[in-house]
Design a protein around this nucleic acid. Structure first.
Length: 270
DNA sequence: ATTATATCCTGATCGC
DNA sequence: TGCGATCAGGATATAA
């Protein structure tokens, strides 16, 4: 499922149910995951749940130093789902990989394709990626322009990498480029300052709007309470090959960049 | 140093 | 209806 708005949605939904809960046991149902790696969490209390880049971060208590405990980062990749369940005694079924039994209910990690990852970091600082969050204050038009000037990559490919801006994926990159009127194959360094500023604005607008909608559901994204997102109704190009552009009626085209589909309007985007 | 390809997995969908 | 090929919102290791 998950790009930034979907992960933000899940983290916000889980926070009230998980904060203050104590981990009673961790059950691992997938041989790809080493149960010993999660053992340090047993007995600890959850102090915070928040999105960190494209991951759901869960902060834990440290006896004596409540704010300095370890953080568990869960990357959902393509098919991961997190949900709180009131009953922790249900028999585990198919895509369930890990169940964290809590003093009230349980946190379930389902993941059909098993691409998702669980990583335990000693502190929040260790769990924080080097790149910056596109919804945060550090992301400015000047910052974006300076970065783009250094790269000959197609702008679409550049936006997808996670070492500068953290959290963008295939859907929102296509949508933001369309809104900004920029062709996805343009070399990053060919964008003018005005174009970079337009792209900056489009990215923030799209992300904010998608978070308000609870994310996008295309295949099987479900948020933490099992509901679908609503942003798919607002997609203007993603998955709409052949449909008329909402602005100029030209049929939307699809191209492949790095084995990923990119959707764009050949008239509106230059 | 960038930039392509292969790979991790499973399930839904497409075309014949 | 059945069956193999293809594709899927991610990211990394390896190759070129």
């Amino acid at each position: 499922m998950p790009e930034l708005p979907e992960v933000e949605t899940v983290a916000r939904q889980l926070a009230p149910a998980l904060t203050g809960r104590r981990v009673v046991a961790v059950q691992v149902f997938d041989p790809k995951i080493d149960p010993a790696s999660l053992e340090p969490l047993i007995g600890r209390t959850i102090t915070a749940v928040r999105r960190i880049g494209k991951q759901v971060g869960i902060g834990f208590s440290q006896p004596g130093i409540p704010e300095a405990g370890p953080w568990l980062c869960i990357h959902l990749r393509m098919t991961g789902r997190l949900a709180w369940a009131p009953d922790c005694r249900q028999p585990p079924v198919a895509p369930l990989r890990v169940r964290f039994r809590l003093d009230r209910g349980a946190l379930l990690f389902h993941d059909t394709r098993r691409f998702g990852t669980l990583t335990l970091y000693p502190t929040l600082r260790d769990a924080t990626p080097a790149g910056i969050d596109p919804t945060g204050r550090a992301f400015t038009p000047a910052r974006l322009t300076a970065w783009l000037a250094q790269s000959a990559s197609p702008i679409k490919v550049w936006l997808m990498r996670q070492d500068r801006l953290v959290g963008l994926g295939n859907i929102y990159v296509s949508e933001a480029l369309h809104r900004a009127g920029i062709h996805p194959a343009r070399p990053a360094r060919s964008l003018s300052f005005d174009e970079a500023a337009r792209l900056h604005k489009a990215l923030r607008l799209i992300l904010r709007s998608a978070i308000r909608c609870g994310g996008t559901t295309i295949f099987n994204f479900e948020n933490a309470v099992g509901a679908a997102g609503q942003f798919q109704r607002r997609l203007r190009v993603y998955g709409r090959e052949g449909d008329p552009c909402a602005r100029c009626r030209t049929p939307i085209q699809r191209l492949v960049q790095q084995q990923r589909s990119t959707f764009f309007c050949p008239t509106c985007q230059h």
